[in-house]
Write a protein that binds this DNA or RNA. Structure first.
Lengths: 109, 109
DNA sequence: TTATTACATCGCAATATTACGATATAATGT
DNA sequence: ACATTATATCGTAATATTGCGATGTAATAA
């Protein structure tokens, strides 16, 4: 027990859930918002920005990378992180598809 | 350890993370999609629909209720579940605000 | 080469989530 | 009252997530 039964659900349902999990931690939301707001995408000061340990930030960054939302390119000693616009739109559409599927007009109950 | 440091983040970041967590399981996504697609919101057959045990479904429904995305009204012996349109839009906007904050034009990196 | 700087990974403890059998509750039917 | 039906809650085992110190790695500087 304790393991999600992914085989019971559609590809898309599993994909949305997996992506949503990445948004399901305030540190990762904060990282994304910081990357958006720093209109240039030079980084490394995330550890100062958020109050978490370097190891913890690194772990969150990895999860964002794994789902494809951000990319990191080595810039000398440090790493430049930025949002992947293609994937960003893709993920936006995943959520949009679900949200727009509900016709707010039909207020039953 | 193991506990999210919510005090480090903004109200809105914590709220979005909390809401995203509800979408972060395919069973809950499936439940929402089923409620959307069953244009009437009479229910109870979710246990047959998804392949999970009744206790598990009930637990997922509670999480959806707790975040306010669905409402359940007692209908005799069974319960009618349906999506709360107000909350649905509210949550949609929470995500939309984040997604639209990124200007896809500025393709740096 | 050795030191420094920036980040990644490992390993572990604390906590949270998932799933479900068992049991409780609450409304209806006989 | 008793049985039935539908759903909720409890308790617990399996697994996942979070956070961080310690350590590894890789590029540059002295």
């Amino acid at each position: 027990m304790g393991v999600t039964k992914t085989d019971l659900f559609t590809e898309k349902q599993n994909e949305l859930a997996k992506v949503a999990k990445v948004f399901a931690h305030p540190a990762r939301v904060a990282i994304l918002e910081y990357l958006i707001q720093a209109n240039s995408c030079i980084n490394g000061d995330l550890v100062q920005e958020l109050g978490l340990a370097q190891a913890t930030i690194s772990q969150h960054l990895r999860e964002l990378k794994e789902i494809g939302l951000i990319k990191g390119s080595i810039e000398g000693v440090s790493v430049n992180y930025c949002i992947d616009p293609i994937r960003w739109t893709e993920v936006q559409n995943l959520f949009q598809d679900l949200f727009s599927g509900f016709p707010k007009i039909l207020g039953c109950c």
